[in-house]
């Protein structure tokens, strides 16, 4: 079970969270894309092996939605903007 750092509550057990999957482009920004690009950005998950940015909902906690960088291979977690 992973330990996920909620921006409000600090590190908490994974069981308190719901995974929102890979973080997508904000809807507003995506509006200007043509259909093919929009589908690519909003519907297709890259399913990366390695670090990717994903969202989590602290559903059994403070209800915050936030993004983290997680390495899908090692489960190493870093803040969203981290390399």
């Amino acid at each position: 079970m992973m330990l996920i750092a909620c921006p409000w509550c600090g590190p908490r057990d994974e069981s308190e969270f719901v995974c929102g999957g890979e973080k997508l482009m904000p809807r507003g920004e995506a509006a200007g894309l043509d259909d093919a690009a929009w589908l690519e950005r909003m519907m297709i998950r890259a399913n990366r092996r390695g670090p990717h940015v994903e969202t989590w909902w602290h559903a059994k906690g403070c209800l915050a939605w936030f993004a983290i960088t997680r390495d899908t291979l090692t489960h190493e977690i870093a803040p969203e903007g981290a390399p």
């Binding site: 719901v18 929102g20 973080k23 904000p26 809807r27 507003g28 969202t55 909902w57 559903a59 209800l63 915050a64 939605w65 936030f66 993004a67």
Partner: peptide, 12 residues
């Protein structure tokens, strides 16, 4: 609930 919170917190 999750859907609305996600929209409000991450997109708007």
């Amino acid at each position: 609930h999750g859907h609305i919170e996600e929209l409000l917190q991450l997109h708007y």
